[in-house]
Design a protein around this nucleic acid. Sequence first.
DNA 1: TTGCTTGCAAATATTTTGCAATATC
DNA 2: GATATTGCAAAATATTTGCAAGCAA
Lengths: 153, 153
Amino acid sequence: MLTTEQIIETMSGQGLRITDQRKSLAQLFAETEGYLSPKDVYEYMCKKYSGLSFDTVYRNLRVMHELGVLEQIMFEDGAKFRAHCSEDHHHHHMICLSCQKTVPVKFCPMANTDVPDQFMVVQHKFEMFGYCKGCQESGAAAQGAAPAGQGGR
Amino acid sequence: MLTTEQIIETMSGQGLRITDQRKSLAQLFAETEGYLSPKDVYEYMCKKYSGLSFDTVYRNLRVMHELGVLEQIMFEDGAKFRAHCSEDHHHHHMICLSCQKTVPVKFCPMANTDVPDQFMVVQHKFEMFGYCKGCQESGAAAQGAAPAGQGGR
DNA sequence: TTGCTTGCAAATATTTTGCAATATC
DNA sequence: GATATTGCAAAATATTTGCAAGCAA
């Protein structure tokens, strides 16, 4: 995952101004393993910036996503964000349904997949959902939020 | 995909009452290859039922999803629905970014995937996005709506 | 007849936008 | 100092809920 410095440098390099809020955002995402909803981010940021407004959070999340320092994934309960992977080779993710920590998986199924006739594939998604060791032990594997999509098994 | 009759029978069998609206919904989804947003459904239904309200559409979509006759997938612009696959064996999907038609793919990558240490997988998602033959020919492969998730390639 | 469904209205929640004040470069 | 960023207010959008009337079984 990107570090606080990498995030800030990328933003700065793109002409964005580095405000205190954006420093805190960079740090928050650099130190968070799971996905955060806009509300999560807002609540965290509110502790440090009393007069914070929700729209600023949205604006910054969008800017950071467009810039590529944040990844966005849609869950059934809305969009969530995390720092972009710093792994430069193609990979996929295993996501903990309890703490939403993610683990990269190098295996890509595309090489083994027979593409249906005359279908041009431009993008694919391969994600596994489950429970990491820590969450299994703490018994959190009871009722995690379901990810988006047609619940595979 | 499920037929109109299968959808209606399932709903009826679960104790739901079969209203004219629900018949139309069943038919709409049985005859639609792609995903429909709540708004799509509302606009279609409005043609037949002048006084239709949006909340009824939401309620029926939710009920039909919970009942399993509809699949839901999150796109970046919101949830969309389609009739549940009638294929009973495990499979995945190839989804056209232009017309959103889907093609089932039998190959499942889970068998070939090394699950990271001590991660318990309970669910997975493997989806390919691209353009079907028809949309390639009509040149619709220009700017399709991006699917949810961290844009793989 | 019973009680699930619907339409209406309104409440919530979510996300976006205009604008003046402010802070960064 | 020029201009991107922020907070505020409000708009636009999306989704849910309560309730009385209507309709399926």
